[in-house]
Design a protein around this nucleic acid. Structure first.
Lengths: 230, 230
DNA sequence: GTCATATTTGACTATATCGTCATATATGAC
DNA sequence: GTCATATATGACGATATAGTCAAATATGAC
């Protein structure tokens, strides 16, 4: 029985590698094309062509284009969250945390242009009534990740709606600014240009957060661990 | 000759009204459907159906869907700009101006959901390589409008790139925050929820702008007309 | 080698959408 | 009324795309 299982696993192992490789090829090609033409105008044929597999293969791996989009978005958002969380490891001062959350976004956006485009396309899609199935979930999880990070450095636990608001502000600002700035600036300048804005944002958000804490909170001044906050 | 011209004008006048009405019906229907399903997935048939005109009529008025999109975006953005400029009339204090630019956006976004969606769709489209023809122009003009407003209240004229950066920040933040907040909040709550964030943004941006002015600028303190800035 | 199963293929069908065009109607000059 | 012109129509042909499927191939157990 033990052996049977082993064999079974082994049997599948090489084949699984091949299968997985094909799947990755499809995801990779799709990511590229989605970022070039957008979600809706991308044709299955084009994806399979670029992935260099037959069309039937696509439908072996994914039930439909929406399915692929769902998986891709979940993948991307999970990686963005992971990147941000990694940057924030061990930080317990509010201003520093805000700064790192922003930096996490920036690093992701500037190193992975395609993924930034998809992130942005996804968000725009959410403003539609007929948005892609399952598009909402990864974005909500992403906002929650930011909320949890914030919550972890603020001793006085702010109510959920306030945390949510702040998370929206961070995410909205970073991506919004990034998307606008790149219209005129070159993609390469974006990072530099952003640096100068960052401080202002951290200051503004920090201020907002501090103001959200009731004055009678026990030990308010020490409640938020911050650096040089006045 | 004088009379001939008059007649000619008169002859055209009633017909022109009818024509224009048809055109408006098409634009209006398109605006609605674009906001429901997005630009690419919207079919011409659906537009003409909702506008209650024959399909051929569409092609009499517009060469192609891209053409319609172009016109619609220009229309919307021009109205947004006008709304903002109106709000800012006569203001000469920086913080107040920033506040009014934000309020102009908010008013537009919350009173005209479809147009907000189109604004956002348009912006997302610009991140693509294959974006709609002519999509860029209205956005650049819009950013320039904001830049000019800012420039008009800052006596020490900041270099263009800095102004551009600030314009991107304002536009990016407002639309970005708005788009994220609505994922979780109801559309109605958005306005309220935004109010609390606004101050923080104005403060952050104001600070950034003031820091951008060289210390040796003649009469720096009085250079930016501001209220209660410290 | 044989067999069972998992994966891949691309020609094919069915459908959806575009854009055209010959025709019809409305308008206004006369 | 008649005519010329501007506008509107929707059936139609051409094309594009999604998704299917029977057949081919690869894998691994034996």
């Amino acid at each position: 029985m033990e052996i049977e299982l082993k064999n079974r696993n082994k049997r599948r192992s090489r084949q699984q590698r091949r299968t997985n490789k094909t799947r990755q090829k499809l995801l990779h090609a799709a990511r590229e094309i989605f970022a070039e033409k957008g979600l809706a105008p991308t044709r299955i044929d084009e994806i399979t062509d670029r992935a260099d597999v037959g069309k039937g293969t696509f439908y072996y791996h994914f039930a439909t284009k929406d399915d692929l989009i769902k998986e891709l978005m979940q993948l991307i958002m999970a990686e963005l969250e992971a990147g941000i969380e990694k940057k924030c490891l061990g930080i317990n001062k509010l201003d520093q945390l805000l700064d790192m959350i922003i930096e996490g976004h920036l690093e992701f956006f500037s190193n992975r242009w395609e993924d930034f485009v998809l992130y942005f396309q996804g968000r725009a899609d959410l403003t539609l009534e007929d948005s892609y199935e399952g598009m909402e979930t990864p974005f909500l999880e992403y906002l929650e990740t930011i909320q949890n990070l914030l919550d972890s450095v603020i001793k006085y636990h702010l109510p959920k709606p306030i945390l949510h608001r702040i998370a929206c502000a961070v995410a909205g600002f970073v991506s919004g600014y990034y998307s606008f700035a790149f219209i005129a600036d070159s993609r390469e300048d974006l990072e530099k240009t952003f640096a100068s804005m960052r401080e202002a944002l951290v200051a503004g958000l920090g201020r907002f957060i501090r103001e959200s804490i009731p004055d009678d909170a026990p030990g308010k001044t020490s409640t938020i661990k911050t650096e040089g906050a006045k």
